[in-house]
Nucleic acid binder design. Structure first.
Ligand SMILES: Nc1ncnc2c1ncn2[C@@H]1O[C@H](COP(=O)(O)OP(=O)(O)OP(=O)(O)O)[C@@H](O)[C@H]1O
Length: 829
DNA sequence: TAATCAAATGTTTTT
DNA sequence: CATTTGATTA
């Protein structure tokens, strides 16, 4: 086997020892990493090079050598899925029960654990509630309303987003910079502070708090920090490129001690979480953060066959802001392996149908004599919306599948309602949950009563629940309201007593509560279409809770859970369906990557972001040059017309300070419109790319590199968006960027009897055409429609003007479709 | 206060 | 197209 070759001959003593057998599965570099047990160590390496395998082996080695007990090792990752996988891999290598690995998990769950122990040190009770995104926005909304700030003044989303950003950057309200404080009309600090105060009053924390509170604690309370420094002999971090500043500070504080036994592994080409504050630079600066750090690179990929790896590497090389790295095929005999297959469709549902049929084929007749089981196949999409058709198709074709980390079970209304009761029972200070359940099911307790409670509570500085109790006793309400509220409180008290009674079965107590409050009737009445499903979900919830001993245990887990139950059906033979984000860290023999069209991947938002800098026309020109250069005379004329148009276009308020757009046009017009110099291409590339686009490219790279044997990429030129039909979608630029030798293009099945054609020319698009006639610049005074206006078109409906120039408007219609239209053909709304 | 209907709105990815 | 928000009525 080629494996022996890479492993090298110089077998050291330790690999001879029988109880160190697990080292044999590693190559020299990997073994070096495993044997580097002291001091800071960073493993940077590309996809499939065995980083996780090395990390797991190193952990096993540490335990095996008696250097630390399982519970003395802190091993963190970023997603629940990765954490579970890590535990399983450790278990299969060492036989250690995952329950013993108390400090292996996600950053957030580890932080929650610490916070639970140290709660009082930071002004919380250990039974704090963890808020999710929706709770958070709701609280912010109410907060803004209570301060008489309209959503126009400060959009709640914006404030929520900003607060989360601050938390990711480890900024408490008092830590804000001058610039930060100037946000929201100088009210940033006050708003952030009042939000924090409210959470603390309700004994709640949001996701960001979990980490930030721990950092604050470690910073302010030396004894607490010391406890954990002494506790964690070894620290390991997987996917280190996804660390944010807050997480980094947490690690940094823990390693401010004599033994800096920290080992991080990561790959900057797989950094896909910058939107939640991750800073890949933290990984790249490792040796500055940790003096005498050892850095090990792994360069053999043991996962993918030749063309898959070739395509993945070829694609990621297109990123301008990148450190190059070597990645070799480590698997033997992959010269005749499958090329990446690319399929295009132009009918609704065609893509999904194709995937369904293809999977059926793979599992029955197989491919080149190899049949796949369902569990060897995965389908990954950029967004959950893209998976809907696939799911429907699988359902119809009876293909077994499971959704990984899908739209969250705990986000459903009925679940949140019931959870509200549980949360209040567990944490009576939780005013937010109380607000949710006080009139659910409707029991005649309206806005006014709730306002009175809230007012009374803040006046006496007590919780809302306490205030409600007092108001009922003191007859501080209208008698009708008082009776209703009293009844509710009784119900809650009784339910709470049962839920917290350890001698009763948790699931039984939940069932009792649900029937006591008449929740089923409420569902039947309010959701006649799908009450059955909702009731089922409630039952599922109580079953789930039944696996826990105590209410506290269940609530703590539930706060951080987002996947649907997993344990039982892991062994089942099912196709996996997930997002590109969720597939990182996994591998599958066959990968289907769907929705590779411009706007899908890369996502339209990341493209449009670029319109802030360059006019859409400049962008189109650059895109056309790079990915769809003119071939026939007609195309060339249109292309040159567009260049002329760009040259004469008014600058507008685009921030293209260097006027790269006009430079590009000028360079193009100097040539023949057929052949382009490297220089022009470089410029076009500069215009079309951005940090966001590069992150999309990394996402595409992650998708491809999950595949072991077969990788199929597809897209559909037509789509439904918010109920409207859109057509003329272009293939993703990432498809064009794949090395020709590694791909095979398949033409739309229904159009061709032939199976295979060479690199396909892009089909005629009706997206933005460069205009039929020439763009003769004319002063557009006919009607004064300008950027941002809402307009109506006979056929395409309503839309907003993105750009206007010379009698033409680039309009983004409400169905998300962009079109270039003459001024006279639309009316101003 | 609850129920009903018209109108507006829509963050993509995860803890 | 869904789902949520707002306005109006019972
Ligand atoms: N030395 C080796 N010999 C043979 N196979 C190996 C070796 N090291 C790793 N592998 C296999 O290669 C595959 C990829 O390993 P692993 O998942 O650890 O890589 P990774 O670097 O974490 O990948 P990614 O960053 O893409 O998640 C796995 O199937 C693993 O079992």
């Amino acid at each position: 086997m080629t494996l022996q070759q890479t492993q090298g001959k110089g077998t050291d003593d330790w690999s001879q020892m029988s109880d160190l057998k697990y080292l044999e599965g590693l190559n020299t570099a990997q073994q070096e990493a495993v044997n580097c047990l002291e001091g800071p160590l960073l493993i940077v390496a590309g996809a499939g090079t065995g980083k996780t395998r090395t990390l797991v082996t190193r952990l096993a080695h540490i335990i095996n050598l008696g250097l630390a007990r399982p519970y003395e090792i802190l091993a963190v990752t970023f997603t629940n899925k990765a954490a579970n996988e890590l535990k399983l891999r450790i278990q299969s290598l060492t036989g250690i029960d995952p329950l013993e690995l108390s400090w292996v998990g996600t950053f957030h769950s580890m932080a929650a654990k610490i916070l639970k122990i140290e709660a009082e040190r930071i002004g919380l009770n250990s039974n704090f509630t963890i808020l999710d995104d929706n709770d958070q926005t709701k609280i912010i909304k109410d907060l803004l309303k209570s301060k008489d700030i309209t959503p126009e003044e400060i959009p709640p989303r914006m404030l929520t987003g900003q607060i989360n950003k601050w938390k990711n950057d480890a900024k408490t309200p008092s830590n804000l910079t001058k610039q930060d404080k100037e946000l929201f009309q100088d009210r940033a600090e006050i708003l952030y502070q009042s939000y924090q105060r409210e959470l603390l009053q309700s004994n709640c924390v949001d996701f960001g708090d979990l980490l930030l509170h721990v950092v604050t604690l470690f910073t302010k309370k030396a004894d607490v920090l010391k406890t954990y420094q002494d506790k964690f002999f070894y620290i390991m971090v997987d996917e280190y490129q996804d660390t944010n500043i807050c997480q980094y500070q947490m690690l940094r504080l823990l390693t401010q001690r004599k033994e800096k036994n920290i080992c991080c592994v990561g790959d900057d080409d797989q950094a896909i979480y910058s939107w939640r504050g991750a800073r890949p630079q933290i990984m790249l600066n490792f040796s500055e953060h940790y003096k005498d750090a050892k850095i090990i690179k792994l360069e053999e990929n043991y996962r993918s066959t030749k063309h898959i790896l070739g395509a993945g590497v070829g694609l990621i090389k297109q990123n301008l802001m990148r450190h190059d790295k070597t990645l070799r095929v480590g698997l033997p005999n992959t010269d005749h392996a499958n090329k990446i297959r690319i399929h295009a469709f132009d009918e609704l549902f065609a893509e999904a149908k194709f995937i369904g049929k293809a999977i059926r084929k793979l599992t029955t007749t197989g491919l080149n004599g190899r049949t796949f089981s369902y569990s060897e196949i995965a389908v990954a999409a950029r967004t959950w919306a893209e998976t809907a058709d696939i799911e429907e198709c699988f359902f119809e074709m009876k293909i077994p599948y499971r959704v990984i980390g899908g739209p969250k079970f705990f986000d459903r209304k009925e679940i949140k309602d019931v959870m509200g009761y549980l949360k209040v029972s567990h944490n009576p200070l939780d005013n937010f949950s109380l607000a949710r359940i006080i009139n659910t099911p409707t029991r005649g307790i309206g806005k006014i009563t709730h306002q009175k409670i809230s007012f009374y509570a803040s006046e006496h500085n007590i919780s809302h629940l306490e205030a409600a109790r007092k108001l009922v006793l003191d007859k501080g309400l209208a008698s009708a309201s008082s009776t209703k509220l009293g009844k509710f409180l009784e119900l809650l008290e009784e339910g709470s007593r049962k839920l917290n009674d350890p001698t009763l079965l948790l699931s039984n107590s939940i069932n009792t509560l649900v029937s006591e409050i008449g929740y089923r009737d409420y569902l039947v009445k309010n959701y006649p279409e799908n009450f059955e499903e909702r009731i089922e979900n409630v039952v599922k919830l109580s079953d789930m809770a039944g696996r826990y001993e105590t209410l506290a245990g269940f609530i703590e887990q539930a706060g951080l859970m987002n996947a649907e139950e997993d344990p039982d059906d892991h062994s089942n033979d099912q196709v996996s369906l997930m997002t590109l984000h969720a597939c990182k860290g996994s591998e599958y023999p066959a990968m289907y990557l769907i929705g590779w069209y411009e706007g899908g991947l890369p996502l339209s938002r990341t493209i449009e972001e670029r319109y802030q800098v360059f006019s859409p026309f400049v962008y189109k020109l650059a895109m056309s040059l790079l990915y769809n250069p003119p071939k026939i005379t007609l195309e060339r004329r249109r292309f040159l017309d567009l260049a002329k148009f760009v040259l004469e276009e008014k600058p507008g308020e685009k921030s293209d300070r260097d006027n790269l757009g006009k430079t590009l046009a000028r360079m193009i017009l100097r040539g023949d419109g057929m052949k382009f110099s490297k220089e022009v291409e470089t410029l076009a590339k500069k215009i079309t790319t951005s940090e966001a686009i590069e992150e999309e490219r990394r996402l595409a790279h992650v998708g491809i590199t999950r595949a072991k044997e077969l990788c199929v990429i597809s897209y559909n030129q037509v789509n439904m968006f918010r109920g409207q039909f859109i057509s003329g979608l272009l293939p993703s630029r990432f498809i064009n960027e794949l090395p020709n030798d590694d791909v095979e293009h398949y033409v739309k099945e229904r159009l061709s009897s032939r199976e295979f054609l060479g690199p396909r020319s892009v089909p005629q698009q009706n997206k933005i055409q460069n205009g039929r006639r020439s763009f003769t610049p004319k002063a557009d005074k006919t009607n004064s429609i300008s950027e941002g206006d809402r307009v109506l078109h006979k056929v395409f409906g309503k839309g907003s003007v993105i750009a206007s120039s010379n009698n033409r408007l680039l309009i983004k219609f409400d169905n998300n479709q962009e079109k270039l239209i003459l001024n006279d053909f639309v009316t101003l709304l």
